[in-house]
């Protein structure tokens, strides 16, 4: 039983991001409503970000802010802090993700303005006319 638990714990971050990734991808491919596609895109993006952050975690490591001993000496040991590099990449990626969401919603409003609907099949029907 312990081995089974260890097997789950050993790789579960990949499983987590995979499950969310395919939920988001299914939303992007199979949903008919364009807003649902955009929400699927948000979920897809978050899954990739979780995968990225999860490779920076270490056993027994704390947040990547340098701690000080009582005599003001910094504790500079790489095993005591989580890997800061994925955090930096993801920090910028989240804000860019909001910008992408804004552009997607702007295009959505423009589609609504031109075709009068945001359902995919109705848009295709409208374009064939």
């Amino acid at each position: 039983m312990d081995e089974f638990f260890f097997f789950i714990v050993a790789k579960y971050n990949y499983w987590a991001s995979l499950i969310l990734l395919f939920i988001g991808l299914y939303g992007m491919i199979a949903k008919n409503n364009l807003m649902k596609k955009i929400i699927g895109m948000v979920i897809f993006q978050t899954a990739i970000l979780i995968f990225f952050v999860s490779i920076g975690v270490k056993w027994g490591a704390s947040v990547p802010i340098i701690r000080f001993f009582p005599d003001k000496q910094p504790l500079l040991d790489a095993t005591a802090y989580a890997n800061p590099l994925p955090h930096v990449l993801i920090l910028t990626a989240i804000v860019v993700g909001v910008a992408v969401l804004g552009v997607a919603l702007a295009i959505l409003q423009n589609i609504q303005r031109i075709h009068g609907t945001i359902e995919e099949d109705e848009i295709l029907e409208d374009m064939r006319k």
Binding site: K11, Y12, N13, I55, W59, L76, D77, A78, L85, P86
Partner: peptide, 18 residues
Amino acid sequence: WADPGSPASTHLSPGFIE
């Protein structure tokens, strides 16, 4: 999961921290 010896945690990031 959370392996301190993984490739992501051994090459560049210890330099940043230290």
